[in-house]
Design a protein around this nucleic acid. Sequence first.
RNA 1: GCGCUUGUAGCUCAGUUGGAUAGAGUAUCUGGCUACGAACCAGAGGGUCGGGGGUUCGAAUCCCUCCAAGCGCACCA
Length: 569
Amino acid sequence: MSNLVETAKIQLNELINKAISTAIKDGKLPEGEIPQFVIEIPSDTAHGDFATNIAMVSARAFHLAPKKIAEIICEEFDLSNSFFEKTEIAGPGFINFFLQKNWFANVVSDIISEGENYGRSDFGKGEKVMIEFVSANPTGPMHMGNARGGSIGDCLAAAMDWAGYKVHKEFYINDAGNQIAKFGNSLEARYLQIFKGEDVIEFPEDGYHGEDIKERAKGFAEIYGDKYVDAIAEERQKALINYALPLNIEKLRTDLKKYRIEFDEWFAESQLHASGAVMNVVEVLKNKNLAYEKDGAIWYKATEFGGEKDEVLVRANGFPTYFTADIAYHYNKFVVRGFDKCIDVWGADHHGHVARLKGAMNAIGLDGNKLDIVLMQLVNLTKDGEVVKMSKRTGKAITLSDLIEEIPIDAARFFFNMREPNSTLDFDLDLAVEESSKNPVYYVQYAHARICSILKNLEAEGIETSKTSLNNLELLTASEEIELIRILSRLTSEIIMAAKNYDPARLTHYIVDVATAFHSFYTTCHVRVPEKELMEARIELCKATRYVIKNVLTMIKVDAPEKMTNNKE
RNA sequence: GCGCUUGUAGCUCAGUUGGAUAGAGUAUCUGGCUACGAACCAGAGGGUCGGGGGUUCGAAUCCCUCCAAGCGCACCA
């Protein structure tokens, strides 16, 4: 697993520290702690391949002007046997470092040798991480928030997997509590309406009004007929739920699978109630004197753990709240199943719940800091520049299945992962179906297809592109070649950043950058050139680029085609 | 009212966690296919980083304040 960017930074860190200690020993710098400094990649390559601010941040400690410190440090550098060929002092006191050609050659040969594993690292050190996402309400179809959450959660899971975490993807099935009762009431009303008429049986105002409920009631009636019409309400509802819920969950599963998401586990809330885990939370809090009774309900002293007000654990009717079940669920994640870290992907409308849940985890003796919540803002679908609220076909809110019927799955997965989770997303339906340069999905896929096409053409001429030599890579010196390699070198770091910051949208940004650099290289540098050595070097660069594109697209589960099907005339 | 989040080019968004002259795409305009895919490339214009203070060598980034938008503040989830 190679990460030459990181290796170069480590090398620089050593060089700098060594140079300073030598300077101190020689009396050129006064004794003192070496302050925290950063090594970064300048935005403008004219400022070198790497730069450090050491001279600026240490000005105070050394009582010297930054430029003077930079001069002293630079005099002490020993660049032999390093990746670097020169340094310079610039601006207010930056020290800029310039890489040797062989570093770039090494990047390409490393990518070729790691192939479809290039980008993987052991950054996460095998830490057990659970990512819980989508967790759509099983009482109905999935909406755009679920679609976004699906893409973000799935891509984050891939990034963390590649970054060396042991990732477990989970869907939490909310198959208990109030919304299931409401589901039962709604099904019951639709079922009775079939036999008694819609004017006789009133539909509950707060029920689920969707067509899907009617369909389930109809399906139930086809099997059981009027058998439950005169049954007692509780039994009728139970039978309806037992029929409809598994079907709904199965529908979630198949819809998500179409969307290329498969979970390691589907965890049912009901099992936490059945096992007594939920009520156990109440007991634990009572024993810690953190729960009390009032108005027939049991309350948790949330104010003692940063809450603004106390929270109900068990309602006066004896049913525990969602909150209590959620505490039990996270206890299960950390203690029963032993995850080191848990990440929940939630809609931003649940943000008020974050501090509450973390506080409650602390209250029962867990560490709320080990739970990270990724909040994502809502999605605006737009068409012709207007926000689309409803589906034209159904007249209801657009569901995930509506969406993936209308636009390619590649586009859906890509678009939903283009923005940092915590910013609202405008999803342009016109753009998603457009097969043109404006559509970033095609732009990236086109780069991949182009590479495949070049290599195929060379093969047709009898050039075995799988057997070309890696010995000529230092011939890659054109600015477009260097720029492309520089970007390719970043992959491992990009994945680590995506994993560390819970920001998988970095991957889509990155891969667009790669495609841009490749197209630019392609236009300027012809691969099929008379000089055999140069041609071989460029073939290797193409292959390396292809791996990078392929690997990222594989992570985000977007197809990397060998040719674009041309739907234009 | 209190809390969380957001505010960067006409539009959609980046900005390497405090660095050098704030960048892409799109839209507008101008160039480039008788050699590997023009679904591409190159160039131009376009900015009070919401406003105002502060912190320091240095701020889109950190602090305060104001403005605007979204979302929360249930014995719903």
